[in-house]
Design a binder for these strands. Structure first.
Lengths: 225, 225
DNA sequence: CGTGGCATTGAGACTTTTCAAAGGCTGTGG
DNA sequence: CCACAGCCTTTGAAAAGTCTCAATGCCACG
């Protein structure tokens, strides 16, 4: 595939907040990689010799605790960055939730980008601070919210991310559960309850319609019953 | 207080990983501020017009959820950074746990430091990535660990941070509880259990001696009973 | 030396988990 | 394109862990 097509395609879609010139340089330094559902991009403990930007698709970041117990610490969507920490080894595993395309940067190429384009470095810092804020919100969820509040928050977060009333949920119940720190069965039970109460409507496993955003918001904030 | 004394004092103690020249410039751009126990540095929602580096002391980062429910998303010790995210408003509150000294940077001065010293920018990025890794570990704790595992992990983390067998714990039981996502009473009960079992010994409210690190590690990893 | 806040301890209640079985999508192969 | 097999999801009941409420005890500070 000719380089020009790569540029034309990426320039308009990803890396918001970066100037066109720098975005061009960044994309030029990357190597494209296509992955299918359930493919593993890298595993916890692998030598961390590359970082990635998710161009299209979705993925889950997981940390393993002990046999059978894993925590999903985040979901990734188009535009998200992976493995920017300068560590010897990756501290988590990444598995694709849907067919995806990533931009792969060798560590050295990535560092060169930072040196050559200060704007890229400060953009990375902004992104990292943003992720940290998301992580803190999630700690609040995991530490203080009830199962009902967690699931309401999660549905609204997905909704806000896609700006549609129809939420496309590429992850399975078990992955939602591992993200929210509850059991798979609890996710199922509470979503069933939300459906009974008319707050949401599902359409297959992967599509959720938000019907009563107001009540869900109240629940998510711990105001409702 | 003369500037020279500030430099001599800070150069050797804080900001590890930064070259002496840059550290000098950073400290010169800062304004010192002293705070007492329970003093609030800033509150969630305040306009974010400054960032801080904690030079000495300790603090808790809290996010409020609703009346009576707060989550401590992190504890800060000497060398930690605060409020580097370029947001309009702070996303959390910070309260001192012990008498502390902070370096205060006006937002503009901070940005100028980043522009003038690329090394400072990349150092900040490294720090942010490090914090993100800590946050992910904590999400694993909050999402998957039992109360016993959480408290064992916490004690060992503090122990590792100070590299002594005697852990100085500046926070109260309630703050530990809010950090670990359990109730104050559960912290108390499980620490009592650890004492009965001979894993730790306490000396007043703020000092803990680690007596059986091996068993605590097993507990923290979910291997023990 | 008293007093108020913090920590400890106990008992009962509640949420959530675990174990188990049945039902329903999905996507794969014919 | 349809049917089937397997995995995912749903649902139920019992059990475990943790929380809440409440009272007592201890320590630090004034």
């Amino acid at each position: 595939m000719p380089v020009s097509s790569l540029n034309a395609e990426t320039r308009k879609t990803i890396l918001p907040g970066l100037s066109p010139e720098v975005e061009h340089a960044v994309c030029a330094a990357a190597e494209r990689q296509h992955l299918g559902r359930n493919d593993v991009l890298f595993r916890e403990g692998d030598p961390a010799d590359a970082c990635y930007i998710l161009k299209e698709g979705s993925a889950a970041i997981r940390k393993s605790f002990r046999a059978g117990r894993e925590q999903v610490v985040g979901f990734l969507f188009a535009g998200d960055i992976l493995g920017a920490a300068h560590l010897r080894q990756y501290a988590y595993s990444v598995r694709m939730l849907s067919p995806s395309e990533v931009l792969r940067f060798e560590r050295a190429a990535f560092d060169r980008l930072c040196d050559d384009h200060p704007e890229f470095g400060s953009w990375l810092l902004r992104m990292a601070c943003g992720e940290l804020a998301v992580a803190q919100d999630h700690m609040l969820l995991l530490g203080r919210k009830t199962a009902r509040e967690r699931i309401a928050s999660f549905l609204l977060n997905l909704d806000a991310r896609f700006k549609k009333q129809t939420v496309w949920m590429p992850m399975r119940r078990g992955e939602v559960a591992e993200y929210l720190g509850v059991s798979l069965e609890t996710v199922s039970r509470i979503m069933a309850e939300f459906i009974r109460n008319g707050f949401i409507r599902t359409d297959g496993r992967y599509v959720v319609h938000i019907l009563d955003r107001r009540t869900l918001s109240a629940l998510a904030e711990g105001i409702g019953d």
